[in-house]
């Protein structure tokens, strides 16, 4: 206990020395940095989801605020944006048919959040809307903004719900932990069906409920191995791939007849 106190006391002292000449009156503002150990991740065929750990640090934290635990960090790993159509089934003559739909532009394919505390305890809901932060607050732009607000709201909610149900949008409360006054570790979930492409890791720093600073880094997620080669060939050389699929079928049919012949 005594050691701890000594340690805590040592930091402000050293900082005071470092900054006192230039900015004695206005304390420097806090900022946040995150670092990824790699800028690309390869996931293999058997990938069944994983936790991705992101380390980050606070720069120039106010030790008093830090000790009272009034710094909060929200880390987001956002997948590449894609246009999405949300469709609703309705009953027509007893049969369930896709009737109404709403297209949204630039919807992140995946969205994993890790926070120090539940989002509602960190800041006001309006703040998240303004920052477009959190799966429930993320701004989803409808392609046709002339649709009635009620319809847009309904389909937006359905989109969030479907994304959460498939594990692509997730929230890990307590997933950000402070290891020291400066250093934190964030654990975001990668869903088994995490999309390939350029993902963006963003860290948001809050101080007593107020947004202070944001920092971001990019992460490339790609699939590796045999299955990925098949996928790439199917898309890049689709004609040859088709010819191969047909030849394989004929060969299998012919071999099957030779091996298992019963007549």
């Amino acid at each position: 206990m005594a050691g701890m106190r000594a340690f805590a006391a040592a930091i402000p002292l050293s900082m005071l020395f470092a900054i006192s000449p230039a900015t004695a009156q206005t304390p420097p503002t806090e900022s946040i940095q995150i670092g990824l150990s790699t800028d690309a991740i390869s996931i293999t065929a058997g990938f069944s989801g994983a936790d991705l750990t992101i380390f980050g640090s606070l720069e120039n934290p106010d030790p008093l605020v830090a000790r009272q635990g009034r710094y909060d960090v929200v880390v987001v790993l956002e997948g590449p944006p894609r246009p999405v159509v949300v469709r609703r089934k309705d009953r027509v003559l007893g049969v369930w048919i896709n009737l109404d739909s709403e297209t949204f532009e630039n919807v992140p394919v995946s969205y994993s959040v890790a926070t120090t505390r539940p989002l509602q305890d960190i800041a006001e809901p309006a703040k998240y809307k303004q920052l477009s932060l959190g799966a429930q607050n993320l701004y989803l732009k409808p392609a046709d903004e002339t649709d009635s607000p009620a319809t847009i709201e309904e389909f937006t909610a359905a989109l969030r719900e479907r994304k959460a149900a498939t594990g692509l949008y997730s929230e890990n409360v307590g997933g950000v932990q402070f290891l020291s006054q400066n250093l934190f570790r964030a654990t975001v979930r990668l869903a088994p069906n995490v999309p390939v492409g350029t993902h963006k890791a963003r860290a948001f720093l809050f101080k007593s409920g107020m947004f202070v600073k944001e920092s971001s880094a990019q992460l490339e997620i790609r699939k590796s191995g045999f299955e990925q080669s098949v996928f790439r060939v199917a898309h890049d050389y689709s004609f040859l791939y088709g010819v191969f699929a047909i030849s394989l079928a004929m060969l299998t049919g012919w071999l099957g007849r030779i091996i298992f012949r019963k007549d």
Binding site: A234, Y241, G242, T252
Partner: peptide
């Protein structure tokens, strides 16, 4: 062939497993 070139929806691995059992 046409599905493979226009829709990229032919899965050879899936097809092969079905064929192997099938023949």
């Amino acid at each position: 062939l046409v599905h493979a070139t226009t829709n990229q929806t032919v899965d050879v691995i899936l097809a092969f497993l079905l064929m192997a059992g099938g023949v």
